[in-house]
Design a protein around this nucleic acid. Sequence first.
DNA 1: TCATTAAATTGTT
DNA 2: AACAATTTAATGA
Length: 224
Amino acid sequence: MKTLTELLEASLWTKTLSREQRDRVEAETSLKDVAAGAFVCRKGDPVENWIGIVHGLVKMTSVSPEGKTTTFLGVAGGGWFGEGSLIKDQARKYDIVALGPTRLALMPKATFDWLLDTDIAFNRFVIAQLNERLAQFIAMVEIQRLLEPDARVARSIAALFNPVLYPAMGPDVQISQEEIGYLAGVSRQRVNQALRVLENAGLLKVEYGGLRIHDLEGLRSYGT
DNA sequence: TCATTAAATTGTT
DNA sequence: AACAATTTAATGA
């Protein structure tokens, strides 16, 4: 995906929009490219946009006063995020960092609010997305507490391919094993070990600087 | 285009 | 956590 039009095509919430609504969204939403490792926005920034991922990958992280970083969640191609902060009208609670060269779509808060006010289907979409993310977080807590590291890695990767949240994901992800470690909450070495177990199981292929998924269902249910 | 070097990432201990 | 090996990206002829 390269253009805003393509992102809107791939996004589920545009399906029910009228021609006029769709045109207005496209006119008012802008694109922004960010380099690998760059901040998309920082903790404490005022929230002015709903942000979509045209291509690339970003992570939500928090940094402790001692400099330790924790990654909560990766957001992948075709995904939109930030609706929670927009609705509550509060400052960003986390840093958003690009994991690779990433192209973003920025929808102004005014446009987002207008869609919420005028389009019932859009409201349903936002509810569904919030619900899906809630389910993902609950699953994440369960995974962290109950499963062994191999399964944690498998499911953390699978979470990036959630078809509701990120409808435009292809079979490839460009993400280093170190970043997977942050996502899964395990050390880089352990990720390396886990990836080879998963590769031998035929679930994915390890490539330099990334992965190719062969069996998403297998990853999602790994360890049960 | 090719060779060299630096940087990033991976594999091993 | 440290180190070595491998891959990619960058540089300059």
